[in-house]
């Protein structure tokens, strides 16, 4: 009991310490690095709270990919104008501190008040656990994401696609140099990639496969694969390409498309929209989602509409 509390407090303090560095650290680059560390600490907390799905997702997406995207954006700023990129126009003020303390106090009050109320497990949550057997799934979160509230997930995939299309609107006009991401040619890196890449693909597949019964699923798998995509870009094995290819475009829309099929296909049989079609259909949709997530996030990192093999 007390040991648990000590661990909680320690984890909490670490998280707050890292967040402080992110929020008010002097250098932008340092703040980004601390943000990655913050994401990893967050993953530890999710694990501690008994939410391993979130731990996996936050480590891969929250810390890993958001961090990678921020770093590459930072690097682009430095390339455009090294002097201005870090220019910190901070207006440190007492007012900001007061407002921040007020906001924190408000959130704490709301949260603690909510905790002090007599809390019952949520109806929806209980119903999920009670109904999960009907779907043949073992992981209730996969059940919510793909079966009970699958429509949310469809729109969420559409948001990811929109973010990609939106950044195409912007980056088609600015020529991002190919060298922005490829840079180092160390023999050790090559070997590292040779080891890590197959491992990442294996882990991704594994996460996808077990996701229906255990922690994991399309998001975690997709982001692990996107992580290896980033690695391939960094080592120059993959290069950004400016001509978009049909296969890449198909990969981009596959996730939303597969979920649309999941909604509309049951109508052909006279069932309602998104009537449950069994685990096979979920595996199909999750594979498509994994591919979409991996390709979209890799392309967002590359800042290009397509990829090509590097000259290795």
């Amino acid at each position: 009991m007390t040991a648990g509390v000590v661990i909680d407090v320690l984890l909490g303090l670490i998280l707050v310490g890292l967040a402080t560095q992110v929020a008010i650290g002097k250098h932008l680059f340092r703040a980004i690095v601390f943000y990655v560390a913050f994401g990893l600490a967050m993953a530890l907390i999710w694990a501690r709270l008994g939410a391993p799905d979130l731990a996996l997702a936050d480590a891969a997406i929250g810390a890993g990919l958001t961090g990678a995207l921020m770093m590459v954006a930072f690097r682009r700023l430095v390339e455009i104008d090294p002097k201005q990129s870090q220019a910190l126009v901070t207006r440190g003020s007492a007012l900001a501190v007061v407002l921040a303390v007020l906001a924190a106090g408000m959130v704490a009050t709301i949260g603690l008040t909510a905790l002090s109320l007599e809390r019952q497990p949520g109806d929806a949550g209980l119903q999920v656990l009670a109904t999960l057997q009907e779907t043949g799934l073992g992981n209730p979160i996969t059940g919510v994401l793909l079966v009970f509230r699958g429509f949310d997930t469809l729109i969420e995939m559409a948001v990811l696609l929109t973010a990609f299309i939106g950044s195409r609107v912007i980056t088609t006009r600015s020529r991002l140099s190919v060298t922005t991401v490829s840079g180092f040619e160390l023999p050790l890196v090559r070997t590292l990639v040779a080891v890590i890449l197959p491992l990442a693909v294996l882990i991704g597949m594994h996460l996808l496969w077990i996701g229906s019964d255990q922690p994991g699923g399309a998001f975690q798998a997709g982001s692990v694969l996107a992580g290896s995509g980033v690695l391939l870009l960094l080592t120059g094995t993959l290069l950004p390409a400016s001509r978009s290819r049909a296969l890449v475009r198909l990969a981009l829309v596959a996730g939303v498309g597969a979920l649309c099929l999941l909604v509309l296909a049951p109508l052909l049989q006279g069932d309602g929209p998104m009537a449950y079609l069994g685990r096979g259909s979920l595996l199909f949709a999750e594979t498509a989602m994994m591919v979409s997530i991996a390709v979209t996030l890799t392309l967002l990192f590359a800042g290009s509409p397509s990829l090509k093999a590097g000259s290795s």
């Binding site: 707050v16 929020a23 007012l95 900001a96 106090g105």
Partner: peptide, 18 residues
Amino acid sequence: FVLVAAAIFGLGVHGLLV
């Protein structure tokens, strides 16, 4: 963790403002 979240939220507000 509610307190931790509150502290992080406050830090975020501060960062956003300054």
